[in-house]
């Protein structure tokens, strides 16, 4: 394994540039339409997190780590999980049981906004899966490219933002 990945391939980089919006939009479409089509939080989250993988194929690990802050992704995952529990607790605050749907007048069956609290919990799950799987992918890529003599000391790697951004 090389320590420095040389990523100067023009074809792979331009394909990653062009397919990244398609991956993100497809992922968010599947998350949004979770109640009326096969899909939902987990599937859409994984599709959107594949955008991270596309970026890695195009730009290498140094490109990713300067663009995405790994520590913040780790925190946002916990925010997504707490949001899920909070939406489920709305039922207890309203006097019913856990996970109760309390937005009753949400529209007819088959519309986009028709499932009440389930839609909110779906977005929370999609957000959590997106950040969680993205962080997991980045961490494994970092571990694989680390080299033989460095030991992992348990901290999450962060890198300073470089000048010039991604389109070098």
């Amino acid at each position: 394994m090389n320590k420095k990945w040389k990523r100067d391939d023009l074809i792979v980089r331009s394909l990653a540039d062009n397919y990244l919006p398609i991956a993100l939009v497809l992922g968010f479409y599947v998350i949004l339409h979770g109640n009326i089509s096969p899909g939902g939080g987990f599937q859409g989250g994984v599709l959107a997190a594949s955008g991270v993988l596309l970026l890695y194929l195009g730009y290498g690990f140094r490109g990713i780590a300067t663009a995405i802050n790994m520590e913040r992704m780790h925190r946002l995952e916990a925010v997504g999980a707490i949001a899920y529990v909070l939406f489920a607790m709305l039922g207890i605050f309203a006097g019913y049981n856990f996970c109760r749907n309390i937005l009753w007048y949400s529209g007819n069956i088959g519309d986009l906004w028709s499932s009440g609290t389930i839609a909110l919990m779906n977005y929370a799950v999609g957000f959590k899966v997106l950040t969680g799987v993205g962080f997991l992918l980045l961490l494994v890529i970092y571990l694989l490219g680390m080299g033989e003599d460095e030991e992992h000391d348990g901290t999450i790697p962060t890198m300073e933002h470089e000048e010039g951004g991604l389109s070098k």
């Binding site: 780790h74 925190r75 999980a81």
Partner: peptide, 15 residues
Amino acid sequence: LAIMALFVGAFLVTL
């Protein structure tokens, strides 16, 4: 609430 207290504690510790 007992189960959820433990899980929410886990997520808050991450934060």
